[in-house]
């Protein structure tokens, strides 16, 4: 595999909480708290976790849609972690995003051509005809009929709207696209169409994806490597097959066993299913020690005092858990 296109080191994104008469800062929501990963060129990294674990925040922070609290982000050889927003403008064409809700992320007052062409207006000095050519080319690529270029988003179904969002993200020929739950709002039969489209585009254009989803079976399909997040931290990062066949972290094990098997013949016996008790703690007040210690079925005394370090246990497999501290 080639060199890393995206390098994230110890990324932190804390949102302040203000309270009281003088709106003083009384604490912070640690949405992303020390996340590190690499994404190789041409690879898809899946980022999974429950809602509220910080996976979307992480995806947005990597693209610097937020001003991050700490850490470094390197995309395509350039450090962008602490560059001011105005200076990022020139970098934007290489990194794009596909949003979760195709209903909310398209301006209802703009035609499809205007939506897809907006990045071109912003970043190129092409003539109108040149832009329209590119818009048509993009619509062909994502499987939209050219004749619909001058319609408005409301005239399209959910799957088609997501295609518009993908075409917009592709307009500037980016290298890296963050897909933030691109299929969560779609029907099962339409999800497969959009995932196949994303895979075809990756093969044709050599794209690199960060694919954020809570759908473990879909991530297994599309991702080359998978990172599992829990309460603002990556607890396990491994190649796809290794992670799904032999999950190491107790949280990954519980998460995978909770996915219902769509085949009654293979459905697990109730004994093999790990049911986690309780809810995710608040990211404003994470537990002492390991973040997962309040729900972990294999919790030890040490977990409640000392946070585990995210380390490589076997080549390519990273886990943050005391159980694997001794493994070398």
């Amino acid at each position: 595999m080639s060199a890393a296109l995206v390098q994230v080191r110890d990324l932190k994104m804390h949102f302040p909480i203000y309270a009281g008469l003088f709106r003083r800062q009384v604490g912070s929501v640690k949405a992303v708290d020390g996340v590190s990963f690499d994404i190789m060129a041409g690879e898809t990294l899946g980022l999974v976790g429950e809602s509220g674990c910080g996976k979307s925040t992480c995806g947005r922070a990597v693209l610097r849609l937020y001003d991050i609290t700490g850490g470094s982000i390197t995309i395509d050889g350039r450090e962008i972690g602490h560059v001011p927003q105005s200076a990022l403008m020139g970098m934007r064409p290489t990194m794009q995003m596909v949003f979760q809700d195709p209903q909310a992320s398209l301006n209802p007052r703009m035609t499809v051509a205007a939506i897809i062409g907006e990045p071109l207006d912003e970043h190129t000095d092409w003539s109108k005809a040149q832009k329209l050519d590119r818009i048509y080319e993009l619509m062909d690529q994502v499987g939209l009929n050219r004749q619909f270029a001058h319609r408005y988003p409301h005239a399209f179904s959910g799957g088609q709207r997501q295609r518009i969002g993908i075409a917009r993200a592709l307009a500037l020929k980016p290298k890296f696209i963050v897909c933030d739950e691109p299929i969560a709002a779609l029907d099962v039969s339409i999800q497969a169409q959009v995932v196949n489209l994303l895979e075809t585009l990756q093969d044709e254009l050599g794209l690199t994806y960060l694919f954020i989803s809570h759908d473990l079976s879909m991530v297994r399909h599309i991702a080359d490597r998978v990172a599992v997040m829990y309460l603002g931290q990556v607890v396990e990062l491994a190649p796809r097959e290794a992670l799904y066949h032999n999950p190491l972290h107790p949280y990954t094990q519980a998460l995978l066993s909770a996915v219902p098997e769509p085949d009654p013949a293979r459905a697990q016996t109730p004994q093999s299913r790990i049911i986690l008790r309780g809810d995710v703690p608040s990211p404003a007040d994470p537990p002492k020690g390991c973040n997962f210690c309040t729900r972990c079925p294999q919790v030890m005394a040490r977990c409640k005092t000392e946070a585990p370090i995210f380390r490589e246990v076997t080549p390519g497999r990273f886990v943050a858990c005391h159980l694997y501290e001794t493994v070398n």
């Binding site: 099962v188 497969a192 297994r220 399909h221 799904y244 293979r266």
Partner: peptide
Amino acid sequence: LLKTVPSVTGARAARLEVIEGQ
């Protein structure tokens, strides 16, 4: 419908089966 749903176990298909159209 049964084919479009990927599973977390078993073999992984190269492409997902799709139901074309709306």
